[in-house]
Write a protein that binds this DNA or RNA. Structure first.
Lengths: 221, 221
DNA sequence: GTCTATATGTTGATAGAC
DNA sequence: GTCTATCAACATATAGAC
């Protein structure tokens, strides 16, 4: 993470103390930390890396956080909270199952892009520690809710029935989650474009189609 | 990785030596090692973990491999070789761009499922060491070839033109790559089913469609 | 080829001065 | 709240006996 426009470092500094370095907000520091976690991997990032990225020594850094695992917990909690909330909103909105599903796809994609570093870290958790296992369990619960949406849409004949809904759910949200592999805030595609692309590719696939979806379907040229 | 049917451990033992433990093949050991890498993460896996999984002490293990990084190189080389080969075959086959693309989707999916642990490890590489950076570079080259296939299909009007081909490529192969997150060889869905599901979802999306694709297109119920 | 023992470096975390 | 100094645990890797 170099210092580019929109770099989290700019948010981290609350005000400069009278001593040597700067003072930091809890949240600003966390964003820096998560950036390092995502660069080096959670295991690969050392407390020395994390503190240096904050402009603090290890000791000063330990004054703000109890340890590496607490940092991970705070980060994945933020991601899980955001994903959980958007899913709550989607289901509360009601409507046809297929529309709820499309809303869930758009909503989770939006959250992923808006909370990119936190969701990225969440998706890379492997389960080596208690914090990680707890995060995995909560993530599985979210996945189950998404799978249930797909199942409902399939049960009511609103989406294709020739593929197992569980498989569809995994592939679909696998596509969404894969955004963490390449999306970066300053890139060519805007969030809005990406959300549209994901939703449209999910619904219609690659095939060419006229603007009015009810025209006869023809494949290729 | 416990000892289940089809467990790599069974392939690892070549024959029992006259001394205490067993002898191992280079390749069988590598499969065990990659399993541990994927469980604990490359950084999280210690040489102690790796040797213990092989039933050897650390020292005996070092007799077979020069170190942790060599193991990683061998593993990602295997994945990169397999992916590269399938892509070579696809392009050599010729045909319409859209058909080459569909073949590439099927081919990379098949390779991913067949070489699951190796591809999984490859996809998790972050770039902390020279070996990792080299692997990332080779992977980017493969991604570029896939993106070029999508671009060709778009240029000749064989796939939808309302989404940036680069974005399509990333989402499509992101979906394929997401299989490493959950596919396990003994599961309910066969490789064949999964390849079909990926290809069909990619081409047609979620929408219900009659068996004959040329019937008038209707959405929902 | 495998073992026990150990060298050597790194890491997460703490002590205590200022 | 930040620093320098340091610890105990653990990691990669090697030495050398059998």
């Amino acid at each position: 993470m170099s210092t580019e426009p929109g770099d989290p470092a700019s948010d981290a500094v609350a005000h400069v103390g009278r001593g040597r370095p700067a003072r930091y907000t809890h949240e600003g520091l966390l964003e820096l930390v998560v950036g390092v976690f995502n660069e080096r991997g959670y295991d690969g990032a050392t407390m020395e890396d994390l503190s240096r990225a904050s402009g603090l020594t290890k000791s000063a850094f330990y004054h703000h956080f109890s340890g590496k695992e607490q940092l991970l917990r705070m980060a994945v909690d933020r991601a899980l909270g955001a994903l959980s909330a958007v899913l709550d909103g989607t289901v509360a909105g009601g409507g046809r199952a297929v529309d709820q599903l499309e809303n869930a796809i758009r909503g989770t994609t939006e959250v992923l892009l808006a909370e990119l570093p936190y969701v990225t870290l969440l998706l890379r958790v492997r389960g080596n520690t208690d914090v990680e296992r707890e995060a995995l369990a909560r993530r599985r619960a979210l996945d189950a809710r998404l799978a249930a949406l797909v199942q409902s849409a399939a049960d009511s004949g609103q989406i294709r029935a020739d593929i197992d809904p569980r498989l569809i759910s995994r592939l679909l949200f696998g596509m969404v989650n894969s955004l963490t592999e390449w999306y970066r805030p300053g890139g060519t595609a805007s969030r809005r474009e990406i959300v549209e692309a994901v939703a449209q590719l999910a619904v219609d696939g690659l095939t060419t189609r006229a603007t009015d979806r009810r025209v006869p379907f023809t494949r290729g040229e």
